[in-house]
Amino acid sequence: MPRSLLVLLLLVAAVAGSWLARSAMVRWRDLRAAQTYELAAEARPALVRAGAAALCLMCVSALGVAVLLGERGGVRQAVAAVEEGRSAGSADGAAASAPVSAAPVSASASASPSPSPVAFAAVGRAAGGELMQGAVPGPDGRARTVRVWLPAEYGRNATDRFPVIVLHSGTPGRTADADLPDVFDGVASAVQQGKARPFVVVAPEAPGGTGHPCDLVAAAPQAVADDAALRSAVGAAFRTLPAGPAGWSVLGVDGGAPCAAAAGLARPDLYGAAAAVSGRYDAKALTGAAAEAPGAVGARLLLAAAKRDTDGVASGRAVQAALRDAKSRAEVRTSEVVQDYTPERERLRLVRVAVQYLAEQLAK
């Protein structure tokens, strides 16, 4: 086999092995964090990546021996190729973890001086607005789906900037609107009734690797779905207010409610307010998340449930009492008066109440 081809194969194996090893370490840290808090987590992704990295290492060793059997000049060229592969692998890792990155991580992207922004394409219409979708790289380098709902008011003035609601999902690998397609109707109705200003709604795919993404957020607040890369991508593609508590909030409905509560309590530095609708909560875990929140500003959280949802009402009251007993800085309100003919109509009204609360709190 020509020596140049051996060097090329060696370079590819080194880069692939570096990326797989880094990805396996990330997955392993997530698994250890989940096990620490007795959360359900899958070890298979980490094991698969570790095995693939080991296979790449074997290939690098075999190819290295083949190249080293060549001439002395070939030896020096092989060493240079390996060092170049390591540099490319390190550049890929930096691109995946950079807080302002908005482009998918790849070997070609690491070579470009400035990554291109994420492209969002229209995938339909909902509640009078436009639904966009894009793919943003996650902490492990894997592209994740992000849906963005633009209200009808977005296209009426090309200079207006809009506050953001991050809509959390409680289903691994899915966006919240996939389980609750009518959630945008609740947001739009709050605006139509004059109870809130228009919001841009960002619905990121819930992280995988565990069957309980919301428990993971409570245990490790850095695991919020809208990390720095996602916020940068959204800010570059849409006319939103700058990321931060002055213009960004978080919402969760049903299965996503514990995610929103945990994110809001743990990260008041990211969200100006949080609202959780019809959820079931772990009061102890949420109290712990609130206690470790950065900064001196307390979180602002609304826990809303329909009047006939006795379990949801009791769960919300338990969280409120636990935070009060722990003397938490968090300001927690509950809403328990909504009732209507069907659960769907109650959910619509509860989302409307939640959006009104978020609008009021961001205006302060």
Rank of each mutant, 00 (worst) to 15 (best):
A318N: 00
G244N: 00
S249G: 04
S328R: 04
E331A: 11
C214P: 05
G51C: 09
V12K: 07
A158W: 11
L348F: 10
G208Y: 05
M58N: 07
Q133F: 00
V217P: 05
D282S: 03
L6Y: 04
G288K: 12
T175C: 14
R49D: 13
H212T: 14
Y341A: 13
Y341T: 10
A135S: 13
G17N: 12
G244Y: 02
G138N: 13
A66H: 05
V353R: 14
A109N: 11
F238H: 00
V277C: 08
A276I: 03
L57N: 10
A196S: 10
D226A: 15
P245A: 04
R76D: 10
P104V: 08
A127H: 05
A119H: 10
A304P: 09
P242C: 04
S335W: 09
E344C: 00
A354E: 10
T310Q: 14
W248P: 02
V187Q: 05
R3S: 15
L323H: 07
G170K: 01
V250G: 01
A190Q: 03
R86K: 13
A50V: 01
R239F: 08
A289H: 10
Q339V: 10
A326K: 04
A50G: 07
A354N: 11
V338A: 03
A152N: 04
L358E: 06
G70L: 07
P242R: 04
V48N: 05
A121K: 12
A158F: 10
H168I: 08
V136P: 04
V353N: 11
F120T: 01
H212R: 15
G173W: 01
R329W: 00
P204E: 01
V183M: 07
S90C: 12
A94C: 11
A219T: 11
Q320A: 15
R345C: 01
V277E: 08
V183C: 12
S4L: 08
R174I: 00
L9W: 05
R72T: 15
L8C: 02
G74C: 05
V332F: 08
A305D: 11
A127I: 05
P113V: 02
D226V: 12
A40V: 13
Y281I: 03
T171I: 03
G209I: 11
V277I: 14
A78F: 04
L180N: 14
A321Q: 14
G235A: 00
R29D: 14
A314R: 12
I165Y: 05
V15T: 09
T310P: 00
G208E: 15
A54M: 13
R156P: 02
V332C: 08
G288C: 08
G298E: 02
G155F: 10
E83S: 12
A102S: 14
R329T: 01
C59K: 08
V351L: 10
K307F: 07
